[in-house]
Design a protein around this nucleic acid. Structure first.
Length: 808
RNA sequence: GCCCGGGUGGCGGAAUUGGUAUACGCGGCAGACUUAAAAUCUGCUGGGGUUAAUCCCUGUGUGGGUUCGAGUCCCACCCCGGGCACCA
C-alpha cells in the first residue's frame, strides 16, 4: 500500500489556492529576492518534463528563501505570440485567439498540479492587449530615439513559414522553428539597431554571474574584432581597395588581395581581357551562394588582371575575386597573407601565389602556415621585434601616412524585427503618402490585432493583415489623408524581452511598471531556464533592458544578475525527447502514477541540475519508496512509546545538525541531488531507531519534515498537520544549525603506511603524540604486517584525520 | 579547425576541494512475509586472489610527473558532449 498522494496533493492544492501564501509584497522591509523562470511558450503539447525540472528548482529556492525570511517574488506567465502557434492554427483552420486561452488554462492547471508556489496575482500573458500595449509602447520609444529603421536588405527567409527571420533564428542554415532550409531574399524590413549596443552588451557580460559558456556564446555572437582599414592603391587606376585586418603586423607578408564576389569594385578594376571571365565567375558563384551551404563549397577564385601597390614595399600585388571572402564582414576585401593564415595559405597554394614569411617563432614548428606569434622577419625596419609590439607601430606609421585607419568590426547585425505573419504584436506605425512613416500616439495603444478568419501567410513580403481593409486603411493622424497601417508584425521574441518587468507591476494602467517598484525588485536575482536561449532571448532582453535604462525607465543596467541553465532531460533511450522518436515522458502520466512530490523530487535527484540526464522509469521508484517510508514513519513515530536515552538524543541531534547544514548549503548551490541523498541517509537512521520501538522526539522528526518541505511540499505539509500543527510550513522558519557542533571531529584516525590505507585507529582524543600512536599501533595486526622490522622514516599526522607511516 | 564542458561500478551519480574512492538511488543476487505473485522489508553487490580475516593485489579514459599521500594538482595524448565555424 502506498501513501495516499492523490488525496493529499489535491487537498493542499485546494487550500493553498485560497490562502494566498505566496504573495510578494512591494516595498516590504524584508530582504527581497526575485526568482524567475523562463515562462513557457504556449503550445498544444502542454507542459513537458523539462519545464518541470526548471520550475521545481525555482520552487525549491522560492520556498527556501521565504522560510529564511525573504520577500520572494516568484511569478509565472505565458509567452504565446509567434510562428509555432500560428502554424499550428493554420493546420487546424482556427484563429489562435480561439484556442490559445484554452492552452494557457491547461498549462496553468498542470503547473498547479505540481504545487509550485507562484504568486498568481501577477500572472501575465504576452497576447493580452493590456500587455502588448507596452510592447508596442517600448517599440515606439525606440522609434523615437532613432533605433528603428526600415531597410530593404537581403535577409533570411523561411519558405515554409513564409517570413523573414533574424540571423539568430537561423541555425545551421535552417529555420530555427520548422527546420526548413532558409533562403536569402531581398525584403523591406524593420530593423532595430542592436549594434549600437554591441560594446555594452559585450563589456557588461563580465559582471554577470552567468555560466561561462553562455557568456562565451554571446561574446562570439557579438564577435568584436579590432583592427585596421588599409587602402591599397590600384596600379594605373584611380581606385583604392580598402581591406580590413586585425593583423597589421603581417602586412609585409601580403602577396595578394582578395575581393568578395559582390564587392562593388570587383568588376570596375578588372582589366578588359579578364572581364568576361570575372563576370561569368561572379554569376556562377552568386548562384552557388544561394543553393550551397558554406561547408559544401570549395575555395575558388579568379584573377582580375589588376595589381595593387603595396603601401610600404611598393611591390605589385595581384588582385583576385574569390568566394572565401565574405561581403558582409569588414569591407568585403582582405589582404592575403598566405604564410600566416590558413585560408590565405590554401588559396595561395591552389593558385600558386607567392608566400612570404614575416613572423618566426622559436617555439612552434616551422611549417606552413606558420605561427601567428614570434619575432618579425622580412619586415624592413621592424625586423627582430616581437609581432605584438609591431602591431601598434606599423599601425601608427600607416595612419601617419594616411593609408590606414583604426576600426572595429562586429559580427552582430541589426535585429530584423518584422515578420510577414498574422500572429504577433502589430507594429504601431502608419505609412502616409504625404508624411511618410507616422508613429501612433501612446493614447492610441494598444493597437489590437484584428480577429479574422483568413490569415494564411502570403509569401509576397506582405503580411496577411494587408488584406484586412477595415483595419489596414486609416486616415493619417498628421494630414488626415488616406494612409495605411504597417501590416507586418513583431517577432516572437518581442514580448519576452521585458515580461519580467511586468510581473513587478502587472496591473498598472499608466505605465508598464512603476519605477519605484522596479527599483525595489530589480535585478532578477535568479533566472533559471534552458540554454537554448543563450543568444536569442537573453541577448535581445539584455539589449531591450539597456535601452529602457538609457531612457530612465528602469533602474538597472542589466536585467538578470544570476543565470542558471538546467540540463536537458533526455528520453529513457538517452536521446533528446521528441514525438517522432516516441520517447516523450508526459508529466501528467507520472503524476497520476506516483504523484507530484515524487515527480518533483525525482527530477531533482536525477543528477546535477545543469547536466543532461536520461529519464528512467525504474529509478523513479526509488524516490517514491522514500516518500512512502517517510509517510509510514510519521505514523509510527506518533504511536511509539519508549523514549530515547539522553545520549541517543544527543547523537541524533548531532546528525540532524549536520543535515540542516548540508541542506542549507546544498540548496543555495542548487545541489539538490546531493541534498536528497542526505535526506535518505537521515531517514534511514530514524527508521532504524524507530524499529527498536523507541520514540524519536517529535521536534527532531518535524525539523526533518521542514527541510523536506521545499522538495515535497504536499507530503511534508500533510505530515506537519498530522502532528496537530495548524500552521503552514511556508510560514515556518528554516531550521538553523550550530557551527560548533559541525566541527566536532570523528573519533577515529585512518592509518596509512606509505600512503596506503591499512586500518583504523579508534581514539576519543583529538590529538595523539608519537609515543601514544606507536603504543596503540603495536596492538594492531597491521603493525606486524607492514611496520615491524622496517625503519620508520617519518610519521605524518593530520589532526583528527589520518596517520601516515613512511617506512623503508 | 577554434572555444567551452566532461570521461569514476551493469546504469544515474557522490567524494568536505590533496587525506577511508564508489555516498544515495536504480538494477542484480540471496533471505523474510505470502498458498503464490506483486508490494514491502533485511543483507550482499568494482575486478581478481587466497591460508577465509580486523586478509592481500588491483582499480577513477591513456602515458608520464609532483607529493608522505592524487579521482582531485602539472605535462602530453585519446575519446565523448555542447557551441561557433570561411568573421580576415
Amino acid at each position: 500500500m502506498s501513501y495516499p498522494f492523490r488525496k493529499i496533493e489535491k487537498k493542499w492544492q485546494k487550500i493553498w489556492e485560497k490562502k494566498n501564501l505566496w504573495e510578494a509584497k512591494d516595498f516590504s522591509k524584508k530582504p527581497k529576492i526575485y526568482i524567475l523562470d523562463m515562462f513557457p511558450y504556449i503550445s498544444g503539447e502542454g507542459l513537458h518534463v523539462g519545464h518541470v525540472e526548471g520550475y521545481t528548482a525555482t520552487d525549491i529556492l522560492a520556498r527556501f528563501y521565504r522560510m529564511n525570511g525573504y520577500n520572494v517574488l516568484h511569478p509565472m506567465g505565458w509567452d504565446a505570440f509567434g510562428l509555432p502557434t500560428e502554424n499550428f492554427a493554420i493546420k487546424k483552420k482556427k484563429n489562435p485567439i480561439d484556442f490559445v486561452p484554452k492552452f494557457i488554462d491547461r498549462f496553468k492547471k498542470q503547473i498547479k498540479s505540481l504545487g509550485f508556489s507562484y504568486d498568481w496575482k501577477r500572472e501575465i500573458s504576452t497576447i493580452d492587449p493590456n500587455y502588448y500595449k507596452w510592447t508596442q509602447y517600448m517599440f515606439l520609444q525606440m522609434y523615437e530615439k532613432g533605433l528603428i529603421y526600415e531597410k530593404e536588405a537581403p535577409i533570411n527567409f523561411c519558405p515554409s513559414c513564409k517570413t523573414g527571420l533574424a540571423d539568430e533564428e537561423v541555425v545551421g542554415g535552417k529555420c530555427e522553428r520548422c527546420g526548413s532550409v532558409t533562403e536569402i531574399r531581398n525584403l523591406k524590413q524593420w530593423h532595430i539597431k542592436i549594434t549600437a549596443y554591441a560594446d555594452r552588451l559585450l563589456e557588461d557580460l563580465e559582471n554577470l554571474d552567468w555560466p561561462e559558456n553562455v557568456k562565451e556564446m554571446q561574446k562570439n555572437w557579438i564577435g568584436k574584432s579590432e583592427g585596421y582599414e588599409i587602402d591599397f592603391q590600384i596600379e594605373n587606376q584611380d581606385k583604392k581597395i580598402n581591406v580590413f585586418t586585425t593583423r597589421v603586423d603581417t602586412i609585409y607578408g601580403v602577396t595578394f588581395l582578395a575581393l568578395s564576389i559582390d564587392h562593388p569594385l570587383a568588376l570596375k578594376i578588372t582589366i578588359p581581357d579578364y572581364y568576361e571571365n570575372i563576370e561569368n565567375y561572379i554569376k556562377k558563384e552568386i548562384l552557388k551562394e544561394k543553393t550551397l551551404s558554406n561547408k559544401d563549397k570549395d575555395i575558388t577564385g579568379v584573377f582580375t588582371g589588376s595589381y595593387a601597390i603595396h603601401p610600404l614595399t611598393k611591390k605589385k600585388i595581384p588582385v583576385w575575386v574569390t568566394n572565401y571572402v565574405l561581403s558582409e564582414y569588414g569591407s568585403g576585401a582582405i589582404m592575403g597573407v598566405p604564410a600566416h593564415d590558413e585560408r590565405d595559405y590554401k588559396f595561395a597554394r591552389k593558385f600558386n601565389l607567392e608566400i612570404i614569411q614575416v613572423i618566426k617563432s622559436t617555439k612552434a614548428k616551422n611549417v606552413l602556415p606558420y605561427t601567428k606569434d614570434g619575432l618579425m622577419i622580412n619586415s624592413e625596419e621592424f625586423n627582430g621585434l616581437n609581432n605584438t609590439d609591431t602591431k601598434e607601430k606599423i599601425g601608427e606609421k600607416l595612419i601617419l601616412e594616411n593609408i590606414a585607419r583604426k576600426t572595429v568590426h562586429y559580427k552582430l547585425r541589426d535585429w530584423i524585427f518584422s515578420r510577414q505573419r498574422y500572429w504577433g504584436e502589430p507594429i504601431p506605425l502608419i505609412k502616409c503618402q504625404n508624411c511618410g512613416v507616422v508613429p501612433l500616439k501612446e493614447k492610441d495603444l494598444p493597437l489590437k490585432l484584428p480577429y479574422v478568419k483568413k490569415y494564411q501567410p502570403t509569401g509576397t513580403g506582405e503580411s496577411p493583415l494587408k488584406n484586412i481593409k477595415n483595419w489596414i486603411e486609416v486616415t493619417c493622424p498628421k494630414c488626415k489623408s488616406k494612409a495605411e497601417r504597417e501590416n507586418q508584425t513583431m517577432p516572437q521574441w518581442a514580448g519576452s524581452c521585458w515580461y519580467y518587468l511586468r510581473y513587478i507591476d502587472p496591473k498598472n494602467r499608466k505605465t508598464f511598471a512603476d519605477y519605484k517598484k522596479l527599483k525595489y525588485w530589480l535585478p532578477v536575482n535568479w533566472y533559471i531556464g534552458g540554454v537554448e536561449h543563450a543568444v536569442l532571448h537573453l541577448l535581445y532582453a539584455r539589449f531591450w533592458h539597456k535601452f529602457l535604462y538609457d531612457i530612465k525607465l528602469v533602474p538597472t543596467n542589466e536585467p538578470f544578475q544570476k543565470l542558471f541553465n538546467q540540463g536537458l532531460i533526455l528520453g529513457p533511450d538517452g536521446q533528446k525527447m521528441s514525438k517522432s522518436k516516441g520517447n516523450v515522458i508526459n508529466p501528467d502520466d507520472v503524476i497520476k502514477e506516483y504523484g507530484a512530490d515524487t515527480l518533483r523530487m525525482y527530477e531533482m535527484f536525477l543528477g546535477p541540475l545543469e547536466d543532461a540526464k536520461p529519464w528512467s522509469m525504474e529509478s523513479i521508484k526509488g524516490i517514491f519508496r522514500f516518500l512512502n517510508r517517510v509517510w509510514f514513519l510519521a505514523k509510527e513515530i506518533k504511536k511509539a512509546k519508549k523514549d530515547l536515552s539522553q545520549e541517543e538524543i544527543k547523537e541524533l541531534e548531532k546528525e540532524l545538525n549536520l543535515l540542516i547544514y548540508e541542506a542549507t548549503e546544498g540548496i543555495k548551490k542548487l545541489r539538490f541531488n546531493v541534498v536528497i541523498a542526505k535526506f535518505m541517509v537521515f531517514e534511514d537512521s530514524l527508521r532504524k531507531i524507530n524499529e527498536e520501538k523507541k520514540k524519536i522526539p517529535q521536534e527532531i522528526f518535524l525539523t526533518f519534515i521542514t527541510l523536506l518541505f521545499p522538495f515535497a511540499p504536499h507530503l511534508s505539509q500533510e505530515i506537519w498537520s498530522f502532528f496537530n500543527k495548524k500552521s503552514f510550513l511556508d510560514n515556518q522558519p528554516w531550521p538553523t544549525y550550530n557551527e560548533k557542533l559541525l566541527k566536532q571531529r570523528t573519533n577515529f584516525f585512518i592509518i596509512q603506511v606509505n600512503g596506503k590505507k591499512r586500518g583504523i585507529l579508534k581514539s576519543d582524543k583529538e590529538t595523539l603524540n608519537e609515543k601514544e600512536i606507536l603504543t596503540e599501533i603495536k596492538k594492531l595486526n597491521l603493525y606486524q604486517n607492514f611496520i615491524k622490522g622496517k625503519k620508520i622514516e617519518k610519521i605524518i599526522f593530520v589532526k583528527g584525520k589520518i596517520i601516515n607511516f613512511v617506512v623503508k
